[in-house]
């Protein structure tokens, strides 16, 4: 059986967030590839889900049918997911340093066939929310109390399929589905507002019939509060527009490097040392 959900304090969650950030830097620098800054923006949300009592999963029974589901639709940010999974006990933290290496189950994008605990194989942007809609529908048919959380990038909102999924979730009043938009403001080639401005997210999501909250997503207390509110609503799908900063936690380094996006690049060993110093526990 699965243990009672444990609620950690905000201070404990903040400390855990720092641990995740250190893992993200260490593993991507060791891999010499990957997306550390895309991972760092989503740390508070992922930390709160796994360790704040929201995501009811059991690392010893990763396929337990009544578990909650988490889908990282912005699959390139998987270092944040792997870090949380390792800390939660899905696999040893030592495995994190095998990220992206031949033979490792920690692939460059999440692969459910190889890593128990991954709920959707992502990496082609735009599909995660639709998969979450299907899971939420299926779980509800079986009268399971499971909740489905989907984390989407703000650049990813350019994929039309996300809007198809938003409409579908509304049609079926999926109260067991929560979408979290990690609005870190950047995508591959520049600022999201310059590439393809999808804002205002909150107004658009509300117009699609969703319950919407907009929060400061790199602060733990509002993240926890928003997840509490979202999971208490059961008559319609809920969205959290999580306004974050890409690379949060190592921003001074990105400023020094004159690149606040720093998309898809690991830190050099030298910069990683500086980053880890910034992220001391």
């Amino acid at each position: 059986m699965v243990a009672e959900r444990k609620k950690a304090s905000i201070a404990e969650l903040e400390a855990k967030a720092k641990v995740l950030r250190r893992h993200i830097i260490e593993m991507t620098t060791e891999a010499a590839s990957g997306h550390p800054t895309s991972s760092l923006s989503a740390v508070e949300v992922v930390t709160a889900l796994y360790f704040g009592g929201f995501l009811n999963v059991d690392p010893k029974q990763p396929h337990w049918p009544d578990r909650d589901r988490i889908i990282l639709s912005k699959g390139h940010a998987c270092p944040v997911l792997y870090s949380a999974m390792a800390e939660a006990g899905f696999f040893p933290t030592s495995l994190l340093l095998t990220l992206r290496k031949l033979g490792s189950v920690l692939e460059g994008h999440p692969n459910l066939k190889r890593l128990p605990g991954i709920e959707a194989s992502t990496g082609s942007l735009g599909q995660g929310l639709s998969i979450g809609v299907g899971q939420a529908l299926g779980l509800r048919m079986d009268k399971r109390s499971s909740h489905v959380f989907v984390i989407i990038g703000d650049g990813e909102m350019g994929e039309g399929q996300v809007w198809e999924a938003l409409a579908t979730a509304h049609k079926y009043k999926l109260g067991n589905l929560t979408a979290i938009i990690d609005q870190n403001g950047y995508q591959q080639t520049g600022a999201a507002k310059d590439v393809l401005d999808q804002t205002p997210f909150a107004d658009k999501l509300a117009a699609f019939g969703w319950h919407v909250q907009t929060i400061e997503g790199n602060k733990m207390a509002p993240v926890v509060e928003a997840l509490e509110k979202a999971t208490a609503i059961t008559d319609r799908p809920t969205a959290i527009v999580s306004q974050t900063q890409k690379g949060f936690g190592i921003l001074p380094i990105l400023e020094e490097e004159h690149d606040l996006n720093y998309h898809g690049k690991p830190l050099s060993k030298k910069l990683a040392e500086k980053a880890l110093a910034l992220l001391k526990g």
């Binding site: 599909q127 639709s130 299926g138 399929q161 579908t168």
Partner: peptide, 25 residues
């Protein structure tokens, strides 16, 4: 109760099916 018409949106339709399968359907 076992039929879902998700509208004229084939991309979403196929991924929703993937999610339903993941949930055991």
């Amino acid at each position: 109760d076992r039929a879902f018409n998700v509208g004229i949106a084939e991309s979403n339709m196929v991924s929703v099916a993937g999610g339903l399968a993941a949930a055991g359907k």
